[in-house]
Simulated scan of single mutants.
Amino acid sequence: MKRIPLVLASAAAGAFFILALPLSGLIDHSARPGSNAIVDWYSQTAARQSIALRSAMTGVPDLDDPASIRRGAGHFQLVCAACHGSPEAPAARFAEDMSPRPPALTAWRPEARLFQTIKYGIRHSAMPAWPSLMRDDEVWDMVAFVRRLPTMNAIEYAALAHGDADPGTCASCHGETGEGRDNAFPRLDIQSPQYLADALAAFRDGSRQSGTMMAAARQLTDAQIAELSQTFGQRLPVGPAADNELGARIAREGIVSRDVPACDTCHGPTGRVDFPRLAGQPVDYLRLQLELFQKHGAERGGRHAEVMAKVVEDALEEGPHRLEPEEIEAVAEHYGQ
């Protein structure tokens, strides 16, 4: 029994040491590379183990979709290449002075661990969390690209990341005239300048959720938003490409029994200029946007988020406004490329 107080005293002393050591200031926490190998080892080991544990139960979706890989490539070039480098160019000079130094992504890493790292970032490093925690689809796009990165040469990387456009520009993803590159990105040329300006402003202030576009728009001035909107917003007339009877009926008439309005009222050829045109967008993009409204409601953000959330509402108790999955698919196919 005498050993119990001794054990408790030892535990208390150990706890005091653990708390007092960092408070003493004796541990060197400077960012100078190699300043404290023990602290670096501890932090990096803790991060790796945390990522491994938290990714253990993460389900990995199909990551072979070429459009998903291309979207990830565009964002990697815009945000990640400066620190990690790419097959086209080495990392920026400032990355060499970081501690820990961002790794060159030249080796395969487990997809679930990539997801955990990209979505949540790593504390005490330069690796940030994804700007929008509700956009797992964008994080998986990045995973789809990064898992392919070790096998790419400079030509293959450039073709995916920006094509013939200047790296990191709007045209590198959306095309020189906003036509939407390779059916992987939404078209801009079918929208009005007013709608594009509203969307960019919403991405800039974070009221519309997209980690990709929030990162792209954060540094834009009002004058740049106005210029880009005029450059890409042309509102070209595009008719529906698919003959989907159910989707066409919902677009023209809505669903009266559930008080779902006709899509064409706001989004058709004669719809308001502050609403997006739908005809001509990629089917996958349209389906995803409707699913985001259904999953996240008004939190998805954007000027008309509350209206759309009611249209596609998927509450625990069925309300008067709701689109079923097959109806979402039908509408996307009706309007989509």
Results as ranks from 00 to 15, higher is better:
residue 6 L to N: 12
residue 10 S to F: 13
residue 13 A to M: 10
residue 19 L to Y: 09
residue 20 A to W: 11
residue 24 S to I: 05
residue 27 I to L: 07
residue 27 I to H: 08
residue 28 D to C: 02
residue 29 H to N: 06
residue 30 S to I: 07
residue 32 R to Y: 01
residue 33 P to H: 06
residue 35 S to F: 04
residue 49 Q to C: 09
residue 68 S to Y: 09
residue 72 G to Y: 02
residue 75 H to Y: 06
residue 75 H to R: 09
residue 78 L to I: 08
residue 88 E to K: 12
residue 89 A to I: 08
residue 92 A to T: 02
residue 97 D to Y: 12
residue 102 P to G: 01
residue 105 L to W: 00
residue 105 L to H: 05
residue 109 R to V: 12
residue 110 P to S: 04
residue 115 F to S: 02
residue 117 T to P: 07
residue 121 G to H: 01
residue 121 G to S: 04
residue 125 S to E: 14
residue 127 M to C: 02
residue 129 A to F: 04
residue 131 P to Y: 04
residue 133 L to C: 06
residue 133 L to S: 15
residue 145 F to Y: 04
residue 148 R to T: 15
residue 154 A to I: 10
residue 162 H to C: 00
residue 167 P to S: 05
residue 177 T to V: 13
residue 179 E to T: 05
residue 182 D to R: 14
residue 185 F to C: 04
residue 197 A to V: 05
residue 202 A to E: 15
residue 211 G to S: 01
residue 213 M to C: 00
residue 221 T to F: 09
residue 226 A to F: 00
residue 228 L to R: 04
residue 230 Q to M: 14
residue 232 F to T: 01
residue 243 D to R: 07
residue 246 L to G: 00
residue 249 R to E: 11
residue 250 I to S: 02
residue 258 R to I: 11
residue 258 R to L: 14
residue 262 A to G: 13
residue 263 C to E: 05
residue 268 G to E: 06
residue 272 R to Y: 15
residue 273 V to E: 14
residue 275 F to A: 13
residue 283 V to P: 14
residue 283 V to W: 03
residue 287 R to Y: 09
residue 290 L to I: 10
residue 290 L to A: 14
residue 292 L to I: 08
residue 302 G to F: 02
residue 302 G to T: 00
residue 304 H to N: 12
residue 307 V to E: 14
residue 309 A to H: 00
residue 309 A to V: 01
residue 318 E to P: 13
residue 321 H to G: 15
residue 321 H to E: 12
residue 322 R to V: 12
residue 325 P to S: 05
residue 333 E to T: 12
residue 334 H to F: 15
